[in-house]
Amino acid sequence: MGGAVESLVVASNFLFCGFEGISKSLPEVTVGMVHAWNLASPNEPPLEFHMQQNLIPYAHPTAVKKLLVVEGNTILSGSKDGSIKLWSFEAASAANPKGGFVLTQNLLGHAREITGLAVVDTMLWSCSTDGSIRIWDMKQPGAPCQHCITMAPENNSPQQPIPPSSPTGGQPTNNGPGHTNAVTGLVNFKSAAGNFVLSCSLDGTVKAWNGVTGQCVASEDHGEGVVTMTMIGDGNGKPCLLLGLESGTMFIRNLEPTAKIQDAFSPLIQLSYFSAIVHDGAVRSLCKGPAGTFYTAGDDGKVLVYQVTGDLGL
C-alpha cells in the first residue's frame, strides 16, 4: 500500500481498504486512498476512488480513517482532515469505460479526524476528535448537516434540537449535552425500543442517542477515556457492548433490559489486570469473531482473543 492501512471493510463481495499512500500525480506527499477489490476476481487490479479522474487521482488529501458501506453501492469515507465523502458505484460507460465508484457528495463541517460513521435510515451520524457528533440528511440534495451535537456547555444549557426537517416529521426534541473530549466511535443499535446510536469518548462516557430524534437517553461514565467499542453477543446471542479503555481495561455492558437485569447499560464484566490477561496500554481496536469470540488489539503490540461462554447473567 505504501503507507498505513487505517480501515478495512468487506461488503457486497468487495474488500474496501482505506489507507495513506502516494499518488502518482503527487509523488512527494502522502494522500488518502481507497481501493476496492472484487473478491470474485481477486487477481484483477482494484478499483481506485478518485475525487476527479486523472486530475485528482486520490480519495482525500489526508489519510482515510473510516469506511462505511451503505446498501451495497454507497460508500462513505472519513478522513484525518475531517472531511466525509459519499461515493456511488457506476457501471462502465463511454465516460467511464472501466466503471467504478464516483464521488457524489463532499461533507465539510468537522474540524479534526473522523473517528466514526453510522447510518440510521437516511440520516448519517459522524463523530470526530473535535468532540462533536454531526447528523447529515442524505436524502436532501447536498446531504446538509442538520445538527451538530457539541461539547457540553459549561453552564449545562441544553443543545439546540434537530430541525423539523429531520425524519421525525414533527416537533424536534432536545438532544442533551454532548461529549467534553474527543469522540472516538459510533455504533448503531436496533432494538424493540427503537433505533439508537451509541457514542464513546475520551471523556470517559458512553452515551446513547435516539437515532430519530437525536435525544440523549443514557450516559455512563467509566472514569477514563473510552478508546473503542463494538457489539458482541453473550453465549445465547443477546447483544452486549464491548468497550476498550485507555488503561487496557475492558468492559462488557448489556444493551437491553432482561428479566434478570432490568437496567440497560449495566456492567456485566470488567476485564482488568487485577482479574484477567489484558493489554498493557490502551485498547485500540475490538472485533467480534465467530463462536462467541472477540479480538482485541492494543498499544502493547499484542492481539488477544477471548471467548464468551454462558449468558453473562442476562
Results as ranks from 00 to 15, higher is better:
G3L: 05
S7P: 11
A11M: 07
F16D: 08
E20A: 11
S23C: 01
L26W: 10
V31K: 06
G32W: 00
V34C: 10
L39R: 02
P42Y: 04
L47G: 13
M51I: 12
Q53C: 09
L55N: 11
P57G: 06
A59K: 02
H60A: 04
V64T: 11
K65S: 11
N73Q: 09
I75A: 14
L76F: 12
K80Y: 11
D81F: 04
K85D: 06
S88T: 15
S93W: 05
V102L: 11
G109V: 00
A111M: 13
A111G: 15
I114P: 00
T122G: 08
L124N: 02
W125K: 04
R134L: 09
I135Q: 03
P141N: 05
A143K: 03
P144S: 00
Q146F: 06
C148V: 13
A152H: 10
P158Q: 03
P161Y: 08
S166N: 10
P167Q: 01
T168R: 14
G176S: 02
G176F: 01
G194K: 04
G194D: 00
S199F: 07
S199K: 05
A208M: 13
A208D: 06
N210V: 07
V217A: 10
G233E: 14
C240K: 09
L241D: 04
S247K: 07
F251P: 02
I261G: 01
A264H: 03
Q270M: 14
L271C: 02
F274H: 13
F274A: 14
A276S: 15
K288S: 09
F294K: 06
L304P: 06
L304M: 12
V305M: 15
G310D: 04
